[in-house]
Every structure is written in structure tokens, then in C-alpha cells.
Amino acid sequence: MAEPLVELAGVEHRYRARKADVPALGPLDLRVGAGEFLVVVGPSGSGKSTLLRLVSGFERPTTGVVRVLGDAPVPGRDVGAVFQQPRLFPWQAVAGNIGTALRWAGVPRRDRPERIAALLDQVGLAALGKRRTWEISGGQQQRVAIARALAARPRLLLMDEPFAALDALTRERLQEDVRSLTGEERGVVFVTHSVDEAVFLATRVVVLSDRPGRVALDLPIPLPRSGVPADELRGSADFAALRGEVAAALRAVAA
């Protein structure tokens, strides 16, 4: 088998708290390959954000190993991240936020304007480059955050409840855009609380158990990735069956 993008082997994580350590995650074994869209769901506090922080390199596992493309992860290398809040830099305009990301990604100055335009276009905000970050809606801000995370063309994209703060309609529209972010080279790990969102986006859903999170269900989602309109897909019997399966697993771990 080809080298996985992400590999977690025997990973456990505990946070140091004042009195006792808090076991947050694991033990956990998990592999994510290119082309996979892995969606992680689980009860609140089951360690989903912790999992992403381990993979992005912001946190080291207490035991076990995390590898991204065969190496210990380093923030900003190979991995892009989108957080629940857009975290755009308000001291820069929309285009400037993406330009800075391109600079950090090592893109030469003369190539940046074109890449900024292409990235803005990709998230449907071609006209908004000059706006200040507070002059666009929450959904648009999150699109900019996605464009910014894509600037470095990361092999792996991590998204932690990126749509949690958005209204239902904006959320569905963004889901349709994000669904196509995987590619031959790229994988996505996406965290959500919404079972619908999970089944719609994923090629594979992992349900984590209650704290400390372990894999309670690892379910492939064999729904078509293209050719079927989103509404039709969401209304299909296959979709409903998969959703039922994930929801049942979630109920079981929460009980």
C-alpha cells in the first residue's frame, strides 16, 4: 500500500491538569490516505480537536507516534488548517490575508497576485479581495480562511467544525464546495457534530467514543462524489441508511 498521508499508531494523549492528568484521546490507530475525506464525529470532549492538534503538530502525543508523510508533523508543513473561527488577520484586507499565506508558503512576490485571484475565485469571492475582513459575512470569512489554508497547496487539510457558526443555508452551500477539496494528492480530515454533514462530505466516517476517544465505528461512505446533485444525494435512501448507522453509533457511545 502507498504511504499514508497520516498514520497514528498506538496514540494516546493526556493533558496535564492541576491535580491529575486528563486522558483526552486514545489509544488510537488510524490511517488516512490521499483522496480520502475522513470525517470524525463524537461526543463533546471525546478528543476530536485534540486529534487534529496532534496531526497538525501543535501537540505531541503522550504515547505512540503520529506521522504525516512519514515524519513527525511540524505546524505549517504539508498540513493546512481551518478552525471553527476564521481567524483572519483584521490588520489585512481579504487579499492581503491570502497574500501573506502565499508568502509563508514561499510563493515569489510576482506570482502572488495571480494566485490570490485564483484562490479567491475558487471559493467564489473573486470580487471581495479589497474588503476588510469585518466587511464580509461570517460565511465569506470562512471561505477566505479556506482559501488561505489552500494557499500552500497542503497535502492534508484539517478542518475543525468550520461551519458550526454558520446558518443552515450557507452551511449547505459551503459543504458542496468543500466536498471537492480532496484530490489524488490531497486528503481531508474534518470534524463535525452534524451527522448529516459527516455523511454528505465523507468518503469515510469515524465515530469516536466518549472521553478518552477511541474508534467506535469506522465506516466507508460509498456515495457518488460527482454527477449527482447535492439535494438528490441528501434525499437518497443510501444517504438515509448511512446517516442512520452513524447516528446509532453516536447514540451508543453517548449512552
Binding site: F58, P75, G76, R87, W91, A101
Partner: peptide, 27 residues
């Protein structure tokens, strides 16, 4: 810290974080 983390996730080094996040945020 969320800004600093966002910058690091985008590949910023120490100098980048200082020049493009810490200074403008503190201005």
C-alpha cells in the same frame, strides 16, 4: 494566541509571526 497559531499553521516562522502578527496586533 489564535492568530499566532493560525500563522504557524500557515507555515510562518518566528520572524514571520513577529512581523506579520505580533507587531500589527500590538500596534
Amino acid at each position: 494566541r489564535q492568530y499566532v497559531e493560525a500563522a504557524r499553521a500557515l507555515g510562518a516562522g518566528r520572524a514571520g509571526v513577529l512581523a506579520s502578527v505580533v507587531l500589527p496586533a500590538s500596534a
